[in-house]
């Protein structure tokens, strides 16, 4: 049984650089980690002395890594998608996918399609098997209302594989039907974009994470609240949950416990809780009860968290971020002890 009250760090692995993404091989502690040195690292994080092997080919920060069968697909700020054989670690394919930075990558539950979002403000849907382009989704303005370049940070696919959500700098979120590539709803979270017209005359923030509930009814949107001094990530970590078909906001999860960006969101498989992680100079991990909309557990993370993978039983969390890889367990003491034994 997983229980946030049992949350405990079981591994804290130093790794040079900024780690933006991870993909976990199902059932194993083998991870593919996208890093700021343009490499992807293949490592067994639970090994006593993990020995990362580098997959080299990208030319900038690696921001997305997903597994589709025995292929790894990655994205980077160099605008390219790359396909890799996870056994030989050889490049299978390299596709120039976007004109600007690719911010994130998602994969459908059946592993057949890969979705990328980038600062060219286009979301593209790709055939995971052959790398062909299936859809181009355009629904985000290239410029902010204040005439600066906008950014398309994040995307998420619903567990039933029917819907796709994308979120941008100014807090505009679009829900698409994956099969047709049609936009079917929008959700606005303007609080996540701070435009400072007076003191500093630029902006900060943006929607940084999205997640559909297990039944696809709800969409959780993560980012940061309004910031006074935009030199720093000094605003409250913020999550808004929508019944997106009704365009109704059901919860607004923001308190003063942690400041910073919510970089990742994950629902418990039975909707028992919602997990949000991210950070500013430090990091945090928080659990919200979806019945009450209240925090159940709020803890510091060992680093600013950029990506995480929640195990299917929701008893393990693998996370990467600023200079570290961390593994948490949520199992009860006895179970944890048994598992260790």
């Amino acid at each position: 049984m997983s229980n946030p009250q049992n949350l405990k760090v079981v591994k804290e692995q130093q790794q040079t650089g900024i780690l933006f993404s991870l993909a976990r091989v199902p059932g194993e502690s083998r991870l593919f980690v996208g890093a700021s040195d343009a490499n992807i690292y293949d490592l067994d994080v639970m090994a006593e002395k993990p020995e990362p092997a580098a997959l080299s080919g990208h030319e900038s920060y690696v921001t997305g890594t997903v597994l589709a069968g025995d292929q790894l697909i990655s994205s980077a700020y160099d605008g390219r998608l790359m396909w890799w054989d996870i056994e030989t670690r050889q490049t299978i394919r390299s596709v120039p996918a976007h004109q600007r930075w690719i911010r994130e990558l998602a994969v459908t539950p059946d592993g057949r399609q890969v979705i990328s979002v980038a600062d060219d403000m286009v979301c593209r849907v790709w055939d995971a098997a052959d790398g062909s382009l299936l859809h181009e989704l355009r629904g985000h303005a290239p410029q902010t209302p204040h005439h600066f370049p906008s950014m398309l940070y994040t995307c998420a696919v619903s567990p039933d594989g029917r819907f796709l959500a994308t979120g941008d700098r100014v807090g505009h979120n679009v829900i698409w039907e994956l099969k047709t590539g049609q936009s079917i709803a929008t959700v606005e979270t303007p609080t996540m974009y701070t435009w400072d017209p007076k003191q500093r005359i630029h902006s900060i923030g943006g929607v940084r994470s999205l997640a559909f509930s297990p039944d696809s009814t709800y969409l959780a949107v993560g980012g940061i609240g309004q910031i006074g001094n935009i030199d720093h990530l000094g605003g409250p970590a913020r999550v808004e949950v929508f019944d997106w078909k009704k365009n109704e906001r059901t919860y607004e999860l923001a308190d003063d416990k942690f400041k910073g960006l919510v970089e990742r969101l994950a629902f418990h498989p039975n909707s028992d809780w919602l997990l949000a992680a991210g950070g500013d100079h430090g990091g945090f991990i928080q659990f919200y009860d979806l019945e009450t909309g209240k925090a159940i557990r709020q803890e510091k993370a060992p680093m600013h968290v950029h990506d995480l993978a929640l195990s299917p039983q929701a008893d393990e969390i693998y996370a990467v971020g600023h200079g570290k890889i961390v593994v948490w367990q949520l199992a009860a003491e006895a179970e944890a002890a048994a598992a260790a034994g």
């Binding site: 600066f148 370049p149 003191q199 500093r200 005359i201 630029h202 900060i204 990530l233 100079h281």
Partner: peptide, 21 residues
């Protein structure tokens, strides 16, 4: 004067805005 560039957080986003301008 073009203020304010003091990007202690989110340096790259800030510079994406301000250097572009």
């Amino acid at each position: 004067s073009r203020a304010w560039w003091d990007s202690h957080g989110q340096n790259f986003e800030t510079h994406l805005e301000l250097v572009t301008e």
